[in-house]
Nucleic acid binder design. Structure first.
Lengths: 136, 136
DNA sequence: TTAAGTGCAAATTATTTGCAGTAAG
DNA sequence: CTTACTGCAAATAATTTGCACTTAA
C-alpha cells in the first residue's frame, strides 16, 4: 500500500486524475521505484497479465498524458514503435538490436566534449544518445 | 555528365543495377557531392519536380536498397518517418523540432568521454547522437 | 533470355481520434 | 452535476508487399 500511495501521488502530483486504469499503469510503471522502459504494447501486455482490464487505446492515451505531464519521456530509436521511459533525466540508452529492448546506460559518467553549438536562432532542447548493441 | 558518371559509379560500385529511376535518385542524392538528408516523401517530391517519373514505392524500395548496399544510413529521430543520410560515417545530427528537418552537426570535433561499456555478450554497433533544436 | 527492378493497389503496423458512455471531484 | 476519462471502432500515416510487367546485362 505504500506503493499504491506512491504511484497515486505520482499521478496527482502532476495534476492527473487517478482513475482506476491510470492507477494500474502507474503502479506497473513506478510501483517499485525502478526505472522502466515500455512500449504501448508491452505495457498493455503487462496490464492484461495483472488481471485488470484496460484498453490499448487508453494505454496509448495514458502514456501520452504522462509524457505531456512531464512524468515520462518518449524515446525514439526504432522507427516502428515509441518507447517511454519513467526516468525523465537526460541519459544515454542501450538499444538491443536483436530483441528491440531498450535499457539504461546511465550509471557511468558519460560526457560529451565539444558538443556542437546550436546554430543561430536555435537552442538545444535535448541531446539524445543511443548506443546500439549487437549480441556477440 | 561528370555528375551523371559519378552517381552511376556510386550505384555500380555497390553492385546495384543503374536503372533509370535509380540513376535519377542517385543524381539527386549525390550528384553535387554534398551530403543530403531525405525522407522517402521528400525525395519523391524532388524527383517529381525534376520532371522524371518514379513511383513512391520505388523510392521506398530504392532507399532501402541503398541502405542495404551501405551507400546510405537510416536515421531514426522522429518516430513517424525515416530519414536517410548520404553521409555514412558516424556523426551527430541536428533535428529541428519545428520543421522536422535533419541536418549535419559534423564539422565540430565532438567526442564522447566515458561512453558506457557494452554489457557482456554484446558489442557496440553504433552510437547515435541527435541534438534536438528548438527555434528561438 | 532471364533475373532483377518497377509500379500499382492492397496489406500491414503503430498510433490517433470521434463519440457515446462512465466515473472522479 | 459536469468535465475529464475510457473504450471501442473507424481513421490515419508511413511503409511494405504481391504480382504482372519492364528492362538492364
Amino acid at each position: 500500500m505504500t506503493e499504491q500511495k506512491t504511484s497515486t501521488a505520482w499521478l496527482t502530483g502532476a495534476g492527473l486524475r487517478p482513475t482506476r486504469q491510470r492507477a494500474l499503469l502507474a503502479e506497473l510503471l513506478v510501483g517499485d521505484g525502478k526505472d522502466r522502459h515500455v512500449t504501448a504494447e508491452s505495457l498493455f501486455e503487462a496490464a492484461k497479465k495483472s488481471g485488470e482490464q484496460v484498453s490499448l487505446a487508453t494505454v496509448y492515451n495514458t502514456l501520452r498524458a504522462f509524457c505531456n505531464a512531464g512524468l515520462m519521456h518518449e524515446i525514439t530509436v526504432d522507427g516502428t514503435k515509441s518507447y517511454f521511459d519513467t526516468n525523465t533525466s537526460e541519459h544515454p540508452h542501450f538499444f538491443w538490436e536483436d530483441t528491440g529492448e531498450l535499457t539504461d546506460a546511465s550509471r557511468e559518467r558519460m560526457e560529451i566534449v565539444n558538443l556542437p553549438d546550436a546554430p543561430a536562432e536555435a537552442e538545444i532542447a535535448s541531446v539524445d544518445v543511443v548506443i546500439r548493441l549487437r549480441r556477440t
